[in-house]
Computed example of a mutant assay.
Amino acid sequence: MSRAPQVFRRSFGHGPRPVLAVHCSLAHSGAWRGVAEAMAEEITLTAFDMLSHGRSPDWDGQGNYQLLNVQAGLALLTGPLDLVGHSFGATVALRMAMARPDLVRSLTLIEPVLFAAARDEDPAAFAALEEASRPAEAAWAAGDRELATRLFNRMWGPGEPKWPDLPAPARAAMVRAMPVVMASRAVLHEDANGTLAPGALDVVTMPVQILTGAGSPPVIPAIARSLCRRLASAAHAEVPGAGHMLPVTRPAETAAQLRRFWTRT
Score class of each variant (00 low, 15 high):
149 T>P: 00
111 E>A: 07
137 E>L: 05
117 A>G: 09
134 R>L: 11
111 E>T: 10
109 L>R: 11
113 V>Y: 09
136 A>H: 08
143 G>T: 03
115 F>R: 03
113 V>Q: 04
115 F>H: 08
120 D>L: 15
128 A>P: 12
109 L>F: 14
137 E>M: 04
140 W>D: 04
114 L>S: 02
140 W>P: 02
120 D>K: 14
112 P>W: 02
137 E>V: 06
113 V>P: 01
135 P>W: 06
146 E>N: 12
113 V>K: 05
141 A>G: 06
147 L>W: 10
108 T>P: 06
124 A>F: 03
147 L>E: 15
143 G>L: 01
108 T>M: 08
124 A>G: 02
130 E>Y: 10
132 A>L: 15
140 W>H: 04
107 L>I: 06
106 S>C: 12
125 A>W: 13
109 L>M: 14
136 A>Q: 10
135 P>G: 09
123 P>F: 08
137 E>S: 02
141 A>R: 01
122 D>Q: 12
130 E>I: 09
116 A>T: 00
140 W>Q: 05
121 E>A: 10
114 L>D: 01
115 F>K: 07
133 S>C: 15
129 L>R: 04
131 E>C: 13
145 R>A: 15
115 F>S: 08
106 S>A: 14
138 A>Q: 05
127 A>R: 12
146 E>Y: 05
136 A>V: 11
124 A>W: 01
111 E>I: 09
142 A>Y: 05
116 A>S: 03
122 D>T: 05
137 E>K: 00
128 A>R: 15
120 D>N: 15
120 D>G: 13
117 A>M: 05
122 D>A: 13
139 A>S: 10
139 A>Y: 01
148 A>P: 08
128 A>K: 15
146 E>C: 07
132 A>Q: 14
144 D>N: 13
131 E>H: 13
114 L>M: 11
148 A>W: 08
130 E>R: 12
135 P>H: 06
149 T>A: 12
139 A>D: 10
145 R>N: 15
114 L>C: 05
130 E>M: 13
107 L>T: 06
123 P>N: 03
114 L>Y: 01
126 F>S: 00
126 F>E: 00
124 A>K: 02
146 E>M: 07
115 F>Y: 12
133 S>R: 14
140 W>L: 07
136 A>I: 07
144 D>K: 03
134 R>G: 05
122 D>K: 11
107 L>M: 06
106 S>W: 07
135 P>E: 10
108 T>I: 12
134 R>Y: 03
147 L>V: 13
146 E>F: 04
